[in-house]
Design a protein around this nucleic acid. Structure first.
Length: 518
RNA sequence: GCCGGGGUAGCUCAGUUGGUUAGAGCGUCGCACUCAUAAGGCGGAAGUCGUGGGUUCGAGCCCCACCCUCGGCACCA
């Protein structure tokens, strides 16, 4: 048993915190959480990181609007993001803020490691004083700032630049060859077509004045602040202790072929091009996979402050519970595309899949065991592994469901397909009850047959608990608890060893309906 | 504008290298059942497969044109 554990490192994007978290943030965190939980289920050593991006000028502006110090604003908002952990039952191991010392130290170390590719150049651009941002000419409307309708000024500033152009061919190769695998493929193609247009050097600093003194200093040049993206990306190694060459950095970054970034479609270029380029420059290994998810829309519209359609994940959880929120986002939203949220859709999913599906199956099975078997797991005289719910090839048996779960969580990241497969099995279990009519068997006192049927159903429910453990952890535990399997699920979750854990004679604990109908 | 996805039942989508009556889930309607959260099962209705041409013995799948929609097009999650 001294076999070395496989390692797995995954991260989410670190969020801008000039506003509180919304459901789109929740979607990404939950997706990453499920992946992390699955790899733990496989017995791997998992390090799951998330955090906040706090050096942006947007925070300075937001603080100004509220009339509070920037530090106060980021502290308060970062806390809100951290609180998603409890609300959504996230299992991340670390939460990094880019205002932390360990991050600043690492970001500056990375800058110095890239030194050979950094040079100074005068940058000239159209700058809107109101937005405090540079604009491309193509972004202007009639030569005016789209936000303020004012004419931007031509501003010159000496900045540091990074020789991205030097890495064009290398980047093209590692992406084409899936050394850095981009999922789904359409995103990979987008990145490649972007490279094919030719890569230019990028500006990686701005004047401290323009940044209002907020941000991380360029090493050796206090008049300049590090461009937020360069330092933000470095959070992925800083949290592992890159700054002080820590043990986790060696273990999870340097000597690990399983590094995954989970991000939204809007920031793919930074992750698929700039980040690997910085790492190449610094002589560090690249991430192995980048999974790009879509965005959440609300009633078909983009979530936005001005539309006032932002859905607060905390309120949603308060109203419906953690697992239903996790279930909806994972089941209803195709992970690689945009997906839509409405309360109607939410409640429909809740009722049809959770209340009438899983919840009802558990309730009816437990009641029959209560009535016909004195509430105990029945004795059987056959091999559990010959039970049709496990092996019948004509039905969508639970072994098939496991295959789909595995494929979804290690290859395609289509969580909806995994859940759909598990729920197909739930339907099979319901059908199995209907076909075998345990109530008739009980009346005819066909004890042996009845036991076999009910044992198979309990076994199926036990298996479902294992399968949904990564998606709906609380629900899985409730079921496992009723079956007196909670300890095994928590402490030794490896599913391959769990197939015969249902013990005849075990008293089934009564439980409340898992998902009361709305 | 350029490049790339899509447009298939009320809704969300599957449809393999072109081949007989186009599929699933949800919703809806009907039937029988009763262990269950008025849940579950079975059955039915429902589609001129974006439009117009073309290739072919045969096209949702191939070609052309057009319409609509979504995404990408550098320092902006």
């Amino acid at each position: 048993m001294l076999r070395k554990k496989k390692k797995f490192y995954l991260t989410t994007a670190i969020d801008y915190i000039n506003a509180p978290p919304h459901c789109g943030h929740a979607l990404e965190k939950i997706q990453a959480d499920v992946i992390a939980r699955y790899h733990r289920l496989l017995g791997e050593e998992v390090f799951f990181l998330t955090g906040t991006d706090e050096n942006s000028l947007k925070n300075v502006q937001a603080a100004k609007e509220e009339g509070i110090p920037v530090k106060k604003l980021v502290d308060r908002n970062a806390k809100r993001f951290y609180e998603l952990k409890k609300a959504l039952n996230l299992s991340f191991n670390d939460f990094i803020r880019t205002t932390e010392e360990r991050h600043i130290k690492g970001a500056q170390k990375l800058w110095l490691a890239c030194k050979k590719d950094i040079y100074k150049k005068t940058y000239r651009g159209l700058y809107c004083l109101g937005c405090e941002e540079f604009y491309q000419e193509s972004e202007l409307e009639d030569g005016l700032c789209p936000e303020h309708k004012t004419k931007p000024e031509l501003v010159e500033e000496e900045n540091h630049f990074f020789r991205l152009s030097e890495y064009q061919n290398q980047l093209k190769k590692i992406i084409e060859d899936d050394e850095v695998e981009i999922i789904p493929e359409t995103r990979k193609n987008e990145v490649l077509s972007f490279i094919n247009q030719g890569l230019e050097d990028i500006c990686i600093s701005r004047s401290a004045k323009r940044a209002h003194g907020w941000g991380i200093n360029v090493p050796g040049d206090p008049s300049q602040k590090v461009w937020v993206w360069l330092e933000a990306l470095s959070n992925y190694i800083n949290a592992l202790g890159y700054g002080e060459n820590g043990e986790n950095f060696q273990k999870f970054w340097q000597r690990n072929e399983n590094k995954l970034h989970v991000i939204g479609k809007g920031i793919i270029r930074f992750h698929a091009l700039y980040w690997p380029a910085f790492l190449l420059s610094a002589g560090l290994p690249s991430p192995n996979k980048i999974f790009v998810h879509g965005y959440l829309t609300i009633g078909g519209q983009k979530m936005s402050k001005s539309l006032g359609n932002i859905v607060d994940p905390f309120e949603l959880v308060k109203k419906y519970g953690t697992d239903p929120v996790r279930y909806f986002l994972l089941r209803e939203i195709p992970s690689t595309e945009d997906g839509d949220f409405t309360y109607d859709k939410f409640e429909q999913r809740y009722n049809s899949d959770l209340a009438k599906g899983l919840g009802n199956l558990v309730a009816r099975t437990f009641t029959m065991v209560e009535k016909y078997c004195n509430g105990r797991v029945p004795e059987i005289d056959k091999d559990p592994d010959s039970h049709p719910l496990r092996i019948d090839k004509k039905i969508h048996n639970w072994k098939k469901a496991w295959q789909d779960v595995d494929n979804s969580l290690t290859v395609t990241y289509q969580f909806n397909e995994a859940l759909s497969s598990i729920w197909k099995f739930i339907t099979e279990a319901d059908r199995y009850i209907e076909e075998n009519r345990p109530w008739d068997l009980a009346q005819k006192r066909k004890k042996k047959e009845l036991n076999w049927i009910l044992y198979g159903l309990l076994d199926a429910i036990h298996q479902i608990a294992w399968q949904i453990f990564i998606f709906l952890p609380d629900t899985a535990l409730k079921i496992a608890k009723a079956l007196e399997l909670e300890k095994i699920l928590v402490e030794n979750p490896n599913y391959k060893d769990s197939w015969t854990n249902i013990k005849p004679g075990t008293k089934i604990k009564k439980i409340e309906p898992l998902f009361p109908r709305i």
